[in-house]
Amino acid sequence: MLLWSLIFAVSTLAFGLSAVSGGGAGLILMPLLGLAVPAAQVPAALSIGTAASSLARIAAFRRAVRWDVVRHFAPTALPFAMLGAWALSRMDPVYLNLLLGLFLVGNVPLLFRRTPHMVNGKGADGGTPRQAWLSAIGAAAGFLSGFTGAVGLLFNGFYYRLGLRKEEIVATRAANEIMLHLLKLALYGAFGLLDARGLAAGAAVAAAAILSSLLMRRILPYLHERLFRHVGHVATVAAGVAMLVAAGGQIARQDRLALHYARAPTQIAASLSWRRHVFAVEWEPHDELELSHSIRDWTLGDRPRAAAPPHSYILHVSPHKGLYGTRI
């Protein structure tokens, strides 16, 4: 009972922050839901809560929904979400998550930039957003939602550039994403990823999401536009750091990524191991720099042997002999 109460309380807070920041509730709730349901049930339980949150936000801010944005965004988002789910079954998304993390962290300068004056209903340049641009953003959001599960925080800048008021951002973002959440739930149900315990966890998260939306309806009008956007930028950068750490750790484990460093009185050596590749740099005692690439022999164990393995190429940079290469 204590765990379910904790899930409800944390979910209420997480979805309240998500309404302001543009996303991130999943990053907060996934570890906690993992204590209540099996790992395979966590995405389904979270999707139930996220879908309920979007529906509640649409109901709470229905007059603020920009349907002109939704009708160009949603039609391309749905098919590309299915394409993203198909791509997920064919490839590992961890490297894409790493790139997305770098993209999100790239928003750091926005934390120190003054928010320009925005005209309601128009972009930062005062122009009306083009239909093709909205459709392209919808396709990108749909694909990434199906492939990585990340949508909200990645596209914060898209909503800011449209010049929408904070209520319009919350409502329009929910209207754009509701179909994606419902599609995910249908797929989870078809694949048997929803059982009684997962539904119970999803119901607790959904109840908290609805309560959070009702609270945000009263709080949001008192939140300054500049603070609203600043919170969104902070959340974006924080999510980027979290994605970099998570993706980096997963890559290091699955691809055997490792750094080695050794120093002697007259010699310095460092190497980077990735999968079967070993990239090394050595400073020799006769002022010669050696850059090498080799293919690791897994039969020798995880650590590269002292001598260069087979299939090695060494590039020598010497003040006496110049630039030359050797193959071993």
Rank of each mutant, 00 (worst) to 15 (best):
S5N: 04
V10E: 02
V10N: 01
L17H: 07
S18R: 10
A19P: 00
A25K: 05
I28L: 15
P31V: 08
G34S: 14
L35N: 11
A44R: 00
I48D: 00
A51I: 01
A52R: 00
A56P: 03
V65F: 07
H72R: 10
A74K: 01
T76I: 06
P79Y: 11
F80S: 13
S89G: 15
L96A: 15
N97Y: 11
N97M: 14
L98I: 08
G106F: 08
N107P: 10
L110I: 00
L111G: 09
F112P: 12
R113W: 06
T115G: 03
T115H: 08
T115Y: 04
G126R: 13
P129K: 07
A136H: 05
G142A: 11
F143M: 03
G146D: 07
F147C: 05
F147P: 01
G152P: 01
G163C: 04
R165Y: 02
E168S: 12
E168H: 03
V170Y: 02
A171I: 07
T172S: 13
I178E: 01
I178W: 06
L180E: 01
L185M: 08
A190M: 13
F191I: 03
F191V: 08
L193Q: 15
L194T: 10
G202N: 00
V205M: 10
I210T: 08
S213H: 02
L220Y: 06
F228P: 04
H230G: 08
V231G: 08
V241H: 09
L244D: 09
V245K: 10
A247H: 03
I251P: 01
A252Q: 14
A262E: 14
A264Q: 14
P265Y: 02
A269I: 03
A269K: 11
A270C: 09
L272S: 06
S273I: 01
R276L: 10
F279C: 01
V281C: 10
D287Y: 09
D287P: 01
P304C: 13
A308T: 14
P309K: 12
P310G: 13
V317E: 03
S318W: 05
H320E: 15
R327G: 10
